[in-house]
């Protein structure tokens, strides 16, 4: 450090701040912003890539699914449950008093109008992500005639709503549209 520098440091403003302090701070601030803007691409590369996102819709033909039958299709790497509900299941789902539900949702909010017999849900337990049983006739369906997650014991009803166990919310309804009476597009 030359003599001048030291002088400059000592003879600052009255409040003791010098021009050098200001330069340090601005340099540090620019450095921090620079580092952060370089860090972002390094982190964001972990998010879903364009080709992963491109895979994000699936069409399902409903015609072969008989009443009381379910199928599981893959959508974005996850199982989606498509169930052709029986009249009894629809009745049960509608009859539930909403105040007893943890995640209060009417059955009509979980199916499309006029298509009550089709229940389309992401088949992933909202607790920690296991696939609940109940898709096959021979599966355990839990205490509410729907699905049962064996991992930590969550029971879902015939509308896929959480009724008992640790899961916080109902099984998720993905975005889907009816392309015709027997064809849906998920995603």
């Amino acid at each position: 450090m030359s003599e001048d520098d030291t002088k400059d440091n000592k003879q600052g403003h009255e409040d003791g701040e010098t021009r050098r302090d200001f330069l340090y701070l601005t340099a540090a601030a620019f450095g921090a912003v620079g580092a952060a803007s370089f860090a972002w691409p390094l982190i964001d590369q972990m998010n879903p890539a364009a080709d992963t996102l491109a895979l994000s819709s699936t069409e399902v033909d409903l015609a072969p699914i008989e009443e009381g039958q379910s199928i599981t299709v893959m959508w974005r790497g996850k199982p989606v449950f498509v169930r052709h509900r029986t009249a009894k299941e629809i009745e049960e789902a509608k009859a539930v008093d909403l105040t007893v539900l943890r995640d209060k949702q009417a059955d009509s909010d979980r199916v499309q109008e006029g298509k009550e017999k089709w229940l389309v849900m992401v088949g992933i337990c909202t607790h920690l992500g296991c696939v609940p049983a109940g898709q096959k006739d021979t599966d355990v369906k839990g205490d509410y005639d729907g699905w049962f997650c064996p991992c930590h014991g969550s029971h879902y009803d015939s509308s896929g709503r959480i009724r008992k166990g640790p899961a916080p919310t109902n099984l998720e309804i993905p975005e889907y549209t009816f392309l015709s009476d027997t064809l849906i597009k998920i995603g």
């Binding site: 998010n47 879903p48 992963t52 974005r76 790497g77 996850k78 992933i124």
Partner: peptide
């Protein structure tokens, strides 16, 4: 969770 997975479920990424 999406960031950790690099997708919509545990998968190749």
């Amino acid at each position: 969770v999406t960031l950790l997975w690099g997708g919509f479920s545990v998968d190749n990424p």
